[in-house]
Design a binder for these strands. Structure first.
Lengths: 364, 364
DNA sequence: TTGTAAGCGTTATCAT
DNA sequence: ATGATAACGCTTACAA
């Protein structure tokens, strides 16, 4: 009885059914024996090899059908050194990543691959462990989005040194010779900044993610670049890094709002952070978009539903997942050299109530 | 270049790295050869068998370390007829299921199992295909939550007939001799009804899920039971079944609200449906909880954030996932007979603005 | 203490 | 057209 589950009631009674590891399946040998032919003949018949007698083939297939024969993939994998399995390592299963996984899954399945999803839970340690396990499981390749803690890449290098196909996506590692699929995060930051500037905001704070996370830093970079090119002063004190956690964002925003001259807008590099900020804004009695503007990132469904609705940058998660899996499959087929392939998906801004003052000031 | 991806730019250049299936790994044979001992000796040394010479053991281990030897799991699995892999089939990766997967993953990993997650996407066909593939992959067992389309259970029976461990969770199948973990959905329905009655609502509509989905029907059953025992008339016209889709729920709610005598409350059997209903309610210019009450199910984070916040029934998804995986592991270890085990988790009502009139009428 | 050999389920290479 | 045999990487009696 699991302890932490609130209230659990159980019904129990008796029957008999203890499991032995993998009940004996029908094998090609069984068929051979029954039909008094050799194992290799059965193998050939089953695979429709050209050099099998017509009758033999029929007999074999009939019996195989009858005995519900299924080829043992393990044996095949051992022989072929190929498991038709993809190791997928992701930091969590939040909306965005779940959507990406959906895309990856769809393409992979179609191509005949099964995906083993492992969550690193934003922990570098678990990412290492997952890599190790999947490596041992002899997956045919890896698709990885690194955790926010990941700063050293021995596990990635290990995969590479073993010449195992690898694609990084979303949270990629720069300066490393691996095919990647990612968002143009800098552009995403730019879009957000441009919009806020056009709406007349000028003292803009940023809620960033963990300090060493490149997707966060790129969004911030694009954002501040645009501030500069529009001659808007960027105050470093208005940048707060926090974990991807609504509560942290709430506290960070609270801090921002309590400054002597508070910011008149907040750019959060994820919607989850934006939601935290929104709670703080409401609590402070400020109204959006009048007193303060708010822009998030990811365009999660919730942004449309909140009051006010939140302006956000769409990252096309599902398509990104599909593109990633497609690239991976290409890589596996190895027709061309894709090691430096770098697929960059363009973000799109969805303007909503939280920042839309209905005006338009020029911007670059 | 994936077509549907909005805008994609690519950089490409040349290096050399075509993949051959699984680069040759170090095997015990290599070690044996190098050390001029037999394969079995190496095997023994590596596994710390008692009957190996101390020096031999050291030498073997040293070389294994040096060559970065890793035992081939495929070979082991073939031999042991056990893959240490769990096949997990779920209808989707929405918030609730993603949370459950997290719980399952955590427990499974700890127990040394890797999870293969397959999404049926609410399609019976895909559920069958997934089952077939996982069966072929020789997973050690299955954890399944059936799709909303699933009405015939041949695939389940096939798993059972092969004596492969199986646990059903959340969306289980009744009247089938399989260990299960599920919510007390009837109680969930009761809690919702009781609350609405206490708040003075009396003409209550229900937004149900797909018609043959038991979790939906149980919630409805608990709900209507409670209406009856409180002498509140239950009008069958006020029950609408719809797919788990916000838009359908929106339209269904719109229909309900346009009736000659409209309902004064809506019970939605999922939060997603509740959100759809909320949009329709707002559009109709009605205010919650005064004009109309609304209760959802799942207690997703969004229910707290919306305006008004939505009353919802918590189902302890994470704990449910953990309980499921624990039961599965127990089943695998097979110490007791668990075939009729039925773990039932108790739901909890979280009362929020959408239905809280701050009054309390007696109810049973 | 160490080696030999069979076996897990399959395919592929030779013969026949 | 079919059969024998080796091989994939490993464990495990059984011999030595």
């Amino acid at each position: 009885m699991p302890e932490r589950v609130p209230v659990i009631s159980e019904k129990l009674s008796k029957t008999s059914a203890i499991f032995t590891p993998m009940e004996k399946q029908t094998t090609i040998k069984d068929i051979a024996l029954a039909l008094k032919v050799s194992i290799s003949t059965v193998s050939r018949a089953l695979r429709d090899a050209p050099d099998v007698g017509e009758e033999t083939r029929k007999a074999v297939k009939a019996l195989a059908e009858e005995l519900d024969y299924q080829p043992n993939k393990l044996a095949l994998s051992l022989l072929k050194k190929q498991t038709n399995t993809i190791g997928l390592i992701i930091p969590n299963l939040d909306y965005v990543l779940a959507t990406m996984v959906k895309g990856i899954d769809e393409v992979a399945l179609e191509a005949g691959y099964t995906v083993m999803v492992c969550q690193s839970d934003e922990s570098f340690g678990r990412e290492m462990v997952n890599t190790k396990r999947l490596l041992e499981s002899l997956v045919d390749g890896f698709i990885i989005s690194v955790s926010s803690e990941t700063m050293v890449f021995e596990h990635i290098k290990k995969i590479q040194s073993k010449k195992i196909p690898l694609v990084l996506f979303d949270r990629v590692i720069n300066n490393i010779n691996v095919p990647k699929v990612r968002l143009d995060n800098i552009e995403g930051g730019r879009l957000a900044a441009k919009h806020l500037i056009e709406q007349g905001y000028s003292k803009i704070a940023i809620l960033g993610g963990p300090e060493n996370l490149n997707i966060s830093n790129e969004r911030i970079e694009g954002f501040t670049q645009t501030l500069k090119s529009n001659k808007i002063k960027y105050d470093k004190n208005l940048l707060i890094h926090c974990d991807f956690n609504q509560d942290y964002a709430y506290m960070a925003a609270k801090e921002l709002l309590s400054m002597k001259t508070r910011p008149d807008a907040i750019f959060a590099i994820s919607d989850r952070l934006a939601v935290g900020a929104m709670l703080a804004i409401k609590e402070a009695g400020l109204s959006m978009p009048k007193d303060i503007g708010l822009v998030g990132f990811n365009n999660e469904p919730i942004t449309k539903l909140l009051t006010p609705s939140i302006t956000s940058v769409e990252m096309h998660a599902f398509e990104m997942g599909k593109a990633t899996a497609k690239l991976f499959i290409q890589l596996l087929h190895g027709e061309e050299d894709l090691m430096e392939k770098d697929i960059i998906i363009k973000p799109k801004l969805f303007i909503r109530e939280s920042s839309n003052r209905g005006i338009k000031i020029n911007s670059k």
